[in-house]
């Protein structure tokens, strides 16, 4: 029934383990970066890139948003993008970015 249509898209058990290892590696790299001193823009930029990658991987594969209908994607991205936009403007008015 509806589930059958979804099954092939779901990552297999083995794929989940691979995704998990990838996430662990990214976390390790992030921690490593924390100990290397580098120009602050590279430091913050690099950490943000890795953070966004981990965020996207977990949301995409573990929460199956990649295979989900546009409605659910719409709800969540509206929340995430909305939050980022609104709070960047808030911190800008406080000149605390």
């Amino acid at each position: 029934m509806a589930e059958a249509a979804h099954a092939p898209h779901h990552p297999t058990q083995k794929a989940y383990w691979q995704i998990f290892v990838l996430l662990a590696v990214i976390t390790a790299v992030e921690v490593a970066i924390a100990y290397i001193d580098m120009p602050s823009w590279l430091f913050v930029g690099g950490l943000t890139v890795f953070m966004v990658m981990k965020f996207a991987i977990v949301v995409g594969y573990f929460m199956h948003l990649r295979y989900d209908i546009n409605l659910h994607r719409g709800f969540f991205t509206f929340g995430v993008i909305g939050a980022i936009a609104v709070f960047v403007v808030l911190l800008a008015t406080f000149r605390a970015l």
């Binding site: 409605l71 659910h72 709800f75 969540f76 509206f78 929340g79 995430v80 909305g82 939050a83 980022i84 609104v86 709070f87």
Partner: peptide
């Protein structure tokens, strides 16, 4: 999913 969207606002604040 819409509840999780609203939780983004909560933690974002």
């Amino acid at each position: 999913w819409v509840f999780l969207g609203s939780e983004c606002m909560f933690f974002g604040a």
